[in-house]
Design a protein around this nucleic acid. Sequence first.
DNA 1: GGTTGCTTCCGTCAACCAGC
DNA 2: GCTGGTTGACGGAAGCAACC
Length: 281
Amino acid sequence: MTMEMVESQQDDSAGDCMPERDAVRLQNQPGRSHISQGSEAASIADESAESEGIVDSQRRREILSRRPSYRKILNELSSDAPAIPKIEEEKSDDEGVPSGIPAMAMPAGLYHSNTGQYITITQGGAIQISNPASDGVHGLQTLGMTNSGAPQPGATIVQYAGQSPHSAQQYFVPGSQVVVQAATGDMPAYQIRTPTTTLPQGVVMAASPGTLHSPQQLAEEATRKRELRLMKNREAAKECRRRKKEYIKCLESRVAVLEAQNKKLIEELETLKDICSSKAD
DNA sequence: GGTTGCTTCCGTCAACCAGC
DNA sequence: GCTGGTTGACGGAAGCAACC
């Protein structure tokens, strides 16, 4: 349990509603110092070691060390105080869902097609297909999903609003599910279903590494990897901020509870003091 | 209406860290 | 050692209120 953190958060919450970013900046003043800016922080720590000795350096390194994740901290908090809800671990997409039936309320996910496109499943259950070659956001295609009238049990038909320039597209989705282009014609359909054969989980690259020969292909692959990394990090940043907000809310509620407890104990103490003084008289 | 300051949100980068 | 997840820092954009 990191009491230092709770105390610091209590101090923060006790003050005015300074934005978290500015609060952190003020804490890290002056300049662009950052507790986890590796080389910069290390250089500061090294300089202090020379001037202030090994012990001080170690203490400084402890201060500079990275904090545990919000989920970890909050779960530790909640283990100390059962009233505080835990941040739930990410559940697999097919958890709690009958086999073969897609989870329509699945969290926003990012997937990669065998044609180099990216598929994002939004909170609302819609599927967005983007082409990284067209600057990511541009070329976004949104698909509506419906479960009604599925031709086979457990399959979700995704009706494609636009004309697909590709043929025989196949989208692999974690959770032993696969999105496939299920029909041809004027209105191509997509299905999310459990594959009959074992498929690799997660991201499937557009081509096997052995098929990449030309520098252009390598560059495209590098660009694709970068786009994928950026999109994943984008989603991770959103999730991280959400957890941070939840973490701060929990800390604030904990502060409120502790303040109430403190007030109650002070009142009890005053009552006992009065009783003792009256008995002494 | 234009400007300014503040706040919030988001995307990106870079570093750290755990799991393999 | 590599890889992918996590998160602080930073900059930009947008919204809003106060002021001129």
